[in-house]
Design a protein around this nucleic acid. Structure first.
Length: 751
DNA sequence: GTGTCCCTCCTCGGC
DNA sequence: GGAGGGACAC
């Protein structure tokens, strides 16, 4: 069958697994994961095991969902009509829209993004006079989301102390506010959908009967709640086909639970485990480096990537004195790659944290090399666009207080803090939304408020029968947003973004799929909603592209997280330093370190032909110079696959032996966790340039020291503080070593 | 009520 | 270094 041509035996086994069986496919980086997933669906359909309406395929990103859909339609001559392919959030939204009454939600419920959620929480804290220093909004937000991601309501969360109990109370208050305002946050979409299925037998059975095949992409990134949701849907005997890679699990910080993979094999009987280990992407040295690195993690499901593409070139490693020197070096290498005829868009520069991009951008900019930075603000997250959306949300649901507060005085219309305080009081007294409480506010402020309400009402009335794009246009004029940005200097970009909303609405209307009904005539897709409500869901769930457009031949800059799932001919992995990568905040426990290592694994496996790894001795961070030593991850790469481009003061073997000695000497792993504590109690990290005081001694970069075994040396770098401080020291005879200053016996020498 | 200055804080980030 | 929020002056 043409569909199955060119598959390797493992891929073939996965695609053609008997339809009644569950599968856990361990798909290594570059092993053809998406291909297997889409072919499995196509094969099931083609063999007649299931119709399109019987398939549910779930991904994490809209991009992945789109790609899957595109590949499917290219494979089979059928419209994807009736198939549920989408993100967890998108599918849950769809389900909740269809059953909003059963789920106890208003038909026009709005979705809060992370920023909306944070401001909603700040309002809760204010309304209940809660000390926001003791209970910072960010921490409450984390508590709220963590609980939901675990499938729990606040009162179900274990609260060992009064602080936790109070957090849970605040979470309840926040939830009550959301209910009152008819809004749901991202995690609530999932939890509500889960509860809908759990508590309503008829709804559950309906979907269990319908979906006979459930396919899950990036299974290692699922959280507890997503897993429970899948279990409910599959509870009627559906087959689950889960594809994932435990070595690429890099989202524990947002609730992902690799343990779901093991649970899956336990909970779903007769699960076939299939490993895809042939890598079609990277050359041998690059794969060897990745394999050797990930070997250092414990408790893996086990997997070894191999390739028949040959060993290729070694991984190039470079040590720079400073971050700007590192950027200059990257620039130089890129210029010669371009001269050799490499395409710019096939070259990526990766980094651990966004703050690192600036110095790289600066170098590229000055050299006139086109580049694109991924990440950052997306279209629907821009301030002016969010203002516009807030007006639209108010027109759709006037009781949305978050939207109300965002624009009630924007553009300014004489409604100040005092007036709003009165309004908030009135609303609390009446137990109503701010919008509904406006008539209860006396005085001049009250009349200004009344004018605002009249404005919203007028906009609603006048746009009733307008098509969506014209409605948006009307709102931009009558809200005063357009006029405001027209007269603001430097407002032209913002104005442009506002106007961009009109074509966005046009595209949205044109692309809207036709409504889908189930056997009982119930509407099954959100798009049967009024166009405006659907457009607002779309804006919340798909914040827009921040990707470089295909045609642009530009160097690609992004964080390692953002690079997952992508591949490039050449990859520069920068800032590979202790404290930065692994990030110091991840060193508190072994799990954190292992996640950083998986992140490094992801970074390495992005490269097809060339991989460059670099680090700097000194770096500007938070406006201060920081000195650090190279990452332990470098020591975990096989020497035979590396080629050092900068002079090294010692051979690898020597270094490894010394490092082992340093570990034994200094109890480094313990020091790392104490370092975290020291940092918390002592927020200003002593500037290494000014030196570090350890006991009676004062150490500075550039200072000469004497060690009784290693002899005379000079301090190259310092990090940490107090007894936990470490120094990188170059010894005249013994090479460069990293020593714990609190442990190593060092004598400082004059000059 | 509005505009400006200073102080604080700081991973990673999709939906 | 730079964004966002609170305190304070117009």
């Amino acid at each position: 069958m043409a569909l199955l041509d060119h598959l390797n035996p493992e891929q073939l086994a996965a695609v053609t697994l008997p339809p009644e069986r569950h599968a856990l496919v361990l798909a290594g980086a570059g092993s053809g994961k998406t291909r297997v997933l889409t072919l499995r669906m196509a094969w099931l359909l083609q063999q007649g095991y299931v119709g399109p309406a019987g398939i549910l395929a779930v991904t994490f990103t809209n991009k992945a969902a789109r790609e899957m859909l595109a590949r499917m339609t290219a494979l089979l001559p059928l419209t994807p009509r009736g198939m549920w392919i989408g993100t967890f959030h998108g599918l849950c939204n769809r389900m909740l829209r269809a059953h909003h009454r059963t789920a106890n939600l208003p038909a026009t419920f709005q979705i809060l993004d992370m920023a909306d959620q944070l401001s909603a929480i700040k309002r809760v804290l204010k309304a209940h006079q809660i000390d926001d220093e003791k209970y910072p909004a960010k921490q409450v937000q984390h508590f709220v989301n963590k609980a939901k991601e675990d499938g729990l309501r606040p009162h179900q969360v274990e609260a060992p102390d009064s602080f936790q109990r109070r957090l849970a109370e605040i979470a309840e208050l926040y939830q009550a506010q959301c209910e009152r305002e008819g809004v749901v946050d991202f995690a609530e979409l999932l939890l509500r959908s889960y509860e809908l299925l759990r508590d309503h037998t008829s709804v559950r059975e309906h979907y269990q009967r319908r979906f006979r095949h459930i396919l899950v992409d990036e299974f290692q990134d699922t959280n507890r709640l997503q897993y429970l949701w899948l279990c409910l849907l599959a509870g009627g005997g559906a087959s689950v086909f889960a594809v994932g890679d435990d070595d690429q699990s890099i989202y524990a910080f947002r609730g992902a639970r690799v343990g779901n993979m093991a649970d899956f094999e336990r909970d779903f009987h007769e699960t076939a485990r299939i490993r895809l280990e042939q890598n079609y992407r990277s050359h041998g040295h690059i794969l060897d480096a990745a394999n050797a690195l990930i070997e250092h993690n414990q408790g893996r499901m086990g997997k070894n990537l191999w390739t028949d593409r040959g060993e290729g070139e070694p991984v190039r490693v470079y040590e720079a004195p400073t971050d700007s020197a590192e950027a200059q070096w990257v620039l130089g290498e890129i210029e010669s790659l371009i001269q050799e005829g490499w395409s710019r868009r096939e070259i990526a520069i990766l980094y651990r944290s966004n703050a690192q991009s600036r110095v790289l951008e600066h170098a590229l900019f000055r050299a006139g090399i086109p580049y694109k930075v991924y990440g950052g603000l997306r279209f629907f997250e821009r301030q002016e666009v969010k203002h516009a959306l807030a007006y639209l949300r108010l027109m759709e649901n006037p009781h949305d207080d978050t939207a109300f507060l965002r624009v009630v005085n924007f553009p300014t219309r004489g409604i100040g803090a005092r007036t709003l305080e009165n309004l908030v009081d009135a609303a609390r007294l009446a137990g109503s939304s701010l919008y509904a409480a406006v008539p209860h506010v006396p005085g001049k402020g009250g009349s200004n408020l009344a004018q605002f309400v009249a404005l919203i009402e007028r906009m609603r009335f006048e746009t009733q029968s307008l098509p969506l794009p014209e409605l948006v246009d009307h709102m931009l004029d009558h809200s005063g947003l357009r006029a405001h940005y027209e007269k603001e200097k430097d407002g032209s970009d913002r104005l442009e973004n506002l106007n961009e909303l009109i074509p966005a609405a046009t595209v949205f209307v044109d692309e809207g799929p036709t409504p889908e009904l189930d056997a009982d005539g119930e509407v099954l897709n959100a798009d049967a909603l009024p166009a405006l409500a659907a457009f607002l869901s779309h804006a919340a769930l798909e914040a827009g592209d921040n990707q470089a457009s295909e045609g642009d031949d530009a160097i690609q800059l992004m964080t390692i997280h953002a690079s997952k799932g992508l591949e490039f001919q050449a990859v520069f992995l920068t800032g590979v330093e202790e404290g930065l990568f692994p990030h110091e905040n991840s060193l508190l426990d072994e799990a954190g370190l292992e996640e950083e290592r998986r992140l490094m694994y992801v970074a390495i496996t992005r490269a097809r032909e060339r991989l460059y790894i670099s680090f700097a001795q000194a770096r500007m961070l938070h406006g201060q110079t920081r000195y650090s030593i190279r990452s332990r991850f470098l020591e975990e790469l096989p020497e035979g696959s590396l080629k050092w481009l900068s002079p090294r003061t010692r051979s690898f073997d020597e270094g490894a032996a010394l490092r082992a000695a340093a570990w034994a000497d200094s109890d480094w792993s313990g020091a790392a966790s104490r370092l975290g504590q020291a940092r918390a109690s002592q927020p200003t990290n002593p500037l290494a340039a000014q030196g570090i005081q350890v006991g009676e001694q004062h150490f500075k970069v550039g200072q000469n020291v004497q060690h009784d075994r290693f002899g005379e040396g000079v301090i190259l770098a310092l990090q940490g503080s107090g007894q936990q401080a470490q120094a990188q020291i170059r010894f005249a005879a013994a090479g460069t070593k990293t020593l714990a200053l609190g442990v190593a016996k060092l004598v400082t020498l004059d000059i």
